[in-house]
Design a protein around this nucleic acid. Sequence first.
DNA 1: TCGCGGCTCGGGCAAATTTCCCAGGCCGGA
DNA 2: TCCGGCCTGGGAAATTTGCCCGAGCCGCGA
Lengths: 217, 217
Amino acid sequence: MSEVAATGISVLLVDDHPIVRQGYRRVLESQGDLHVVAEADNAADAYGAFKTHDPDVVVMDISMPGASGLEAIRNIRARNPRARILVFTMHNEAVLVKAAFSAGASGFVTKSSAPSAVVNAIRSIARGERAMSDDIAHVLAEDSLSPAGSALDQLGEREIEILQQFAGGATTEEIAAHLNLSVKTVQNYHYLIKTKTGARTDAQLVRLAATCGLTRI
Amino acid sequence: MSEVAATGISVLLVDDHPIVRQGYRRVLESQGDLHVVAEADNAADAYGAFKTHDPDVVVMDISMPGASGLEAIRNIRARNPRARILVFTMHNEAVLVKAAFSAGASGFVTKSSAPSAVVNAIRSIARGERAMSDDIAHVLAEDSLSPAGSALDQLGEREIEILQQFAGGATTEEIAAHLNLSVKTVQNYHYLIKTKTGARTDAQLVRLAATCGLTRI
DNA sequence: TCGCGGCTCGGGCAAATTTCCCAGGCCGGA
DNA sequence: TCCGGCCTGGGAAATTTGCCCGAGCCGCGA
């Protein structure tokens, strides 16, 4: 803590778009107390960079090609349970937010937030607090009030993850490779997700994922 | 042109994420010759800002909530056919690229490109040239070489019809019943459509149909 | 007029996937 | 401790896919 106060907050930036990273870096560093010590454009590199740099805060977009961002969060937290991770993404679906927090994230800010929201969130979670942007708070609030819940609420973390990749166009083999699962397990999840959500067709599954904000079309 | 050379290149930035815009602005303005004269976070505002500021180049993410980015391109070009628009997005599908150019875009750069690629593209299209990032060039090259291409324009009427129903969530049996076909024929069409479009997954098929306006989600 | 090519429609058959059902391990709560 | 949930995968039958095939229809150019 005292170290943080003395030297500012070191940040690891994870996003798959170089220019976006470049922009974040400039925005954060113009604050004075925030220092981007490393960048990564995928989950594996993010884990590697975390090990080498041990940053105070990881700012991560969880919608990356290849391995899942949630998986990256779990990996980082497994190595260091005190790691602070701020999810910073365009998605604002309650299930995703819940999944991120239960995977070990300390904060969740959408990209439609004002720049100051991100900066404040970084400072908050560096102090060990939890942080989220206003729109996320509203989404969670709405979600907790609705008794029925979205069709996706009955899905577990893993199921959400697999649905997201599937709806994004990944094949069963690709998903298995990304998540280090057997093809058989992914097939079983595929089936389970369909029965749980009531989708009778892959196309219906994609539409569901899209309307719930799990994937962009 | 001489005006441009004297005062640099004025840019209108269109993206629905404030922080992303903020980042772009800093990246572009650090170049010296690029000046962001206005920003917009949706298609309607983009059109308004274009009318007021008449920028040399519009840098636009076409995946925005609400009105379509393609529609915005058409509107701007309808007002001023000499408008230069650079599409700057995370998508890299051939159909989208073609659609953007035929809507009147002058360039197409993905967010996974290096920052210099965006800057160079802006300068190129300000000179009246066409520009695209390397990955987009590859996507288009692949697309033009594949015997069937990957867009929907080579699908027959029946194929379009079946794709539409399929993407809408109908099962094979339902489609067969609707169109008075045997299940086998629908299956064959399904397969044919996949090979013609290059989709390796039903999910990719749905996304394709959606981006081409064949179905709404 | 004839042939050519494209679209439509479906059969066939091996290979792959989906659909269920089941089980063990793990973990958190009663 | 036991129960229930999630995660992980095996097994086997049912279904679909991948790819090849032929037939009928229609327009178009020689």
